[in-house]
Design a protein around this nucleic acid. Sequence first.
DNA 1: TACATGGATTTTTTT
DNA 2: AATCCATGTA
Length: 697
Amino acid sequence: MTALATPLHTRTAAPRPDPFASLNDEQRQAVFHGRDGTAPPLLIIAGAGSGKTLTLAARVARLVLDGADPQRMLLLSFSRRAAQDLQRRVGRVLHQALGFGATQRAPELPWAGTFHSVGARLLREYAERIGLNPAFTIADRGDSEDLLGLLRHEQGLSSTHKRFPMKGTCLAIYSRAVNSREPLTEVLQQRFPWCRDWEAQLKALFRAYLAEKQRQCVLDYDDLLLAWWQMLQDPGFAAELGARFSQVLVDEYQDTNRLQAGILLALKPDGQGLSVVGDDAQSIYAFRAAEVRNILDFPKTFEPAATVLALQQNYRSTQPILQACNAVIAEAPERFAKTLWSERNSAERPQLVSLQDDAEQGAWVADEVLAQREQGIALKRQAVLFRTSHHSAALELELMRRDIPYVKFGGLKFLEAAHVKDLLSLLRWSQNPRHRLAGFRVAQLVPGLGPAGARKLLDGIAHAVDAVAALQAFRPAPGAAAAWRELRECLAAMGQAGAAWPAALDLALRWYRPQLQRLHEDAAVRQADLEQLQQLAGGYASREAFLAELTLDPPEATSDEAGPPHLDEDYLILSTIHSAKGQEWSSVYVLNVVDGCMPADMAAGSAEEIDEERRLLYVAMTRAQHRLQLLVPQRFYVTQQSARGDRHLWGGLSRFVTPAVAAHFDRRCSQRVAALATAAASSPVLDIGAQLRSIWN
DNA sequence: TACATGGATTTTTTT
DNA sequence: AATCCATGTA
């Protein structure tokens, strides 16, 4: 593009290098789209590893160089990691593009973040004008579940002769209905058919849930989007917010749901100034009501239709790996046509490895990982990916046995651990004695105080004029009196230390530590999490700020038994495929590429679900730069069973690895499998597993 | 009223 | 594996 030859701002210093010089033609088109003064809507279909984040960052930089106000740019993405990546990259490109020195800082982009965090900020800012208490707190999933559980019990739904869905299921149903904007009947029919009989009761429960949230000034994750959307249904607010943001750029568009698409459409009804980036082939969040249709239908949403550009050059993987990936996704029925290509050639093809079972799979991966490290590939540049968190269990055992350090992403979240919830509830309750949920949880930590006692206490507080006095005046059953006094004194002290932060947390910990010892066998491990919490606390100005921000931006995971390795150490990456999105490693191992696992047997119901599982495998494979192994254990243990159970299924190779796909792989197998195969070759070949399964097909 | 026990149920991925 | 719920006991 010739425009680059002319400096954008007059300078006296030596001409700085063109910040966009490294872009390829497709990327350049995306960056300079709409430069003629108009800003028609833009959809960038960015294949895996095609420099998506770089391109989006460069587009932001280009807009700023052309005079756009960074304060008026809205940058949205779905996950926290993508939001951080984007922010960092934009900063770097801008810094370079403006020719700043090491001491100068690039202009900040105050409105960059996840949909949820930006929603929270906007709602707080506009709270008073839209009838919201600006001091609202944000409930994470655990909080929301607990509240539903409480109401579920109060409505007498816990002791019915036929079982009512559990609190987690209730929240899943509610969330699905909100995010997909579908009526409850539809949601139950499609996704939760076993709960269909409870429609009326669920409706009543959700009504109560809404009322209770309003009474407590609490918003859950879904409310952050829903309230934002509702605000934008008012033409006045829609116009005001639409004008406030001159540019709206969205990353990971394939993971947005109907509610999020509605927000974007209300902000930019004609699509002017709207750019979205995504890859329909990598849409893996339908379970959270993400709509592939959002990205597929984006162009024709607008009049005139949005421009569609595709980034097809892949900078990540070797050509043999890409060919295998392309073969997998080629079997997906509906998608934007694109074919990734790479200049990185290599003789090494990806490998399909047959193994006997889970344990052998773990040993194999450990062997391979160490062998690679001998070749100079650090552990950090290798990753093991899997469908669900617990699939790495056997591998983790093996890694621990061999002292191979690793870090696991995905799985149990920090905020979901019981001990973290306990401590945070104590902080919340001390901040607001009327916080029923927090109080209910904390009170029951007192030995001798159960649900009934806790309810009596909280009812007293709720009806009293002076909540603090009511709390202090409470007299529990005699057996609990002494233990209760300790908590009461702790709360009083925390109240007095109200201004002093993080001293209040120290007080809370002093009371909680003995409870932790009493309640949990593995108190030492959990204690480490609490210490991490203590570390974090110092970084926040107040208890309020700490509690508010922790909900939207929590630490990655709870500390493993191995403990988090030091940053300078080398460690292997273990990750769920979902958590691996957007990342890349030199060597990638994908565990359990077996039917029943990929696709997961519970996700094998509908055609859409199968398609999503296929994309999941595609996402996993496209993470690999130089080396890719799909592992296929012949015998795959069923996870839900007693500790010594031996239930397993004779898994076949995943249905996504069709003969056409397999042709792109080299076959390998462990020695034991090889030995079995030789033995089998001299006798009739019989696939009992497939025959047994076919009975039920 | 609190707690222990046993049987049943649900089962993933993230904000 | 974790949670929920009914039942029995102190």
